[in-house]
């Protein structure tokens, strides 16, 4: 039997390895019930305004399409820096997330705004490429100026039980990232069970992930609250064991402010204060920003808004 994964006590590759089959079990009904409890929190008035600003500030404004062009990315970057000029004093989003070929464009457009450039890499979204290509993909994006790399795990290998392979690949990509922070996309919609989500989370964190991320956005279901809860709890357990903080990024399917606030509630009640910033929590989303802006304007004016008044980029 091959040794799999690393020890729970450290992320260092030199540690002897223990089996990730030790990851805790997840009861589906229980975790979904718990996740739905967060949605009963009533977020009103200043809590809502503050929450929405926080959400806006946590967004990785994303475009990941075959037809993405420099023009499109430039527009997106402007939106990132100026979410809605009619409403002064808004925070910016956290990052702009693009394909590697557009990293340089984004880097230049964002200048010294403080907004990060995130790039997907490793043969996103399927990850079906040899490791050396994934490494080159990663190094290319970093060299182009990416602050953050969003990699995908090899789901096929994971399902085949080759946890070593998955672990080593993440560790290798992490090394290739250099200074860039590494987000590891589990593509939970392809994992099938919460048990596997938990196991993949544990592997990713032990292999050195700075963030764990639910989805590419290309597969349904993408982020859900229970999946995110399972991952947040994995982050908490890892933090308890190692003292190292790992960030969380649900991505895909979060397009409404209300849902984003439910996620925020969940972060607050599972991980607490330390994770309530864009350093440790992100939303991977494209249309969420506008909905947040509409809600913020509504909160300020008291008038329900129309999307016609908010730029679509």
């Amino acid at each position: 039997m091959p040794a799999t994964g690393s020890s729970r006590s450290s992320s260092s590759k030199t540690e002897p390895r223990l089996s990730f089959s030790l990851s805790p079990h997840i009861d589906q009904v229980g975790v979904e019930e718990r996740a739905s409890r967060f949605t009963t929190r009533s977020i009103k008035k200043e809590a809502k305004q503050n929450g929405l600003r926080l959400v806006l500030n946590m967004i990785d404004l994303t475009t990941l399409e075959g037809k993405d062009s420099e023009g499109k990315v430039k527009q997106l970057c402007y939106k990132a820096m100026h979410p809605h000029d009619a409403l002064p004093g808004l925070p910016t989003v956290a990052a702009v997330c693009v394909y590697p070929s557009l990293v340089r464009t984004a880097r230049q457009a964002l200048g010294n705004s403080g907004i990060k450039v995130a790039s997907v890499a490793t043969a996103f979204p399927s990850g079906q490429a040899p490791r050396d290509i994934k490494l080159r993909d990663t190094r290319y994006a970093v060299n182009e100026g990416a602050d953050e790399i969003d990699m995908v795990i090899s789901r096929g290998k994971f399902h085949a039980g080759e946890y070593n392979f998955v672990f080593d690949e993440i560790a290798a990509i992490k090394e290739a990232c250099g200074e860039a922070r590494l987000k590891v996309i589990l593509e939970t919609g392809e994992l099938g069970t919460y048990d596997k989500v938990r196991r993949a989370s544990d592997i990713a964190m032990h292999a050195g992930a700075d963030f764990i991320k639910t989805s590419t956005g290309k597969i349904q279901p993408a982020a859900t609250m229970p999946v995110t809860l399972v991952m947040l709890e994995a982050i908490r357990d890892y933090y308890f064991k190692t003292g190292r903080m790992v960030g969380m990024k649900p991505a895909g399917g979060i397009s409404k402010s209300k849902l984003a606030l439910h996620y925020l509630v969940m972060v607050k009640e599972v991980l607490g204060e330390a994770w309530l910033s864009n350093e440790w929590f992100r939303f991977g989303a494209s249309s969420l920003a506008n909905d947040v802006l509409m809600q913020l304007v509504k909160e300020q004016t008291g008038i329900y808004q129309s999307s016609n008044y908010f730029s679509v980029d």
């Binding site: 002897p16 223990l18 929450g51 064991k241 991980l271 607490g272 204060e273 330390a274």
Partner: peptide, 24 residues
């Protein structure tokens, strides 16, 4: 491994967060 994995440390999470719920 000879050495047992480190037992639980004493890290505590802080739930008294800057973002709070307004009365509802």
């Amino acid at each position: 491994k000879k050495k047992q994995p480190r037992r639980s440390n004493t890290i505590k999470l802080k739930f008294d967060t800057s973002w709070t719920y307004a009365p509802a």
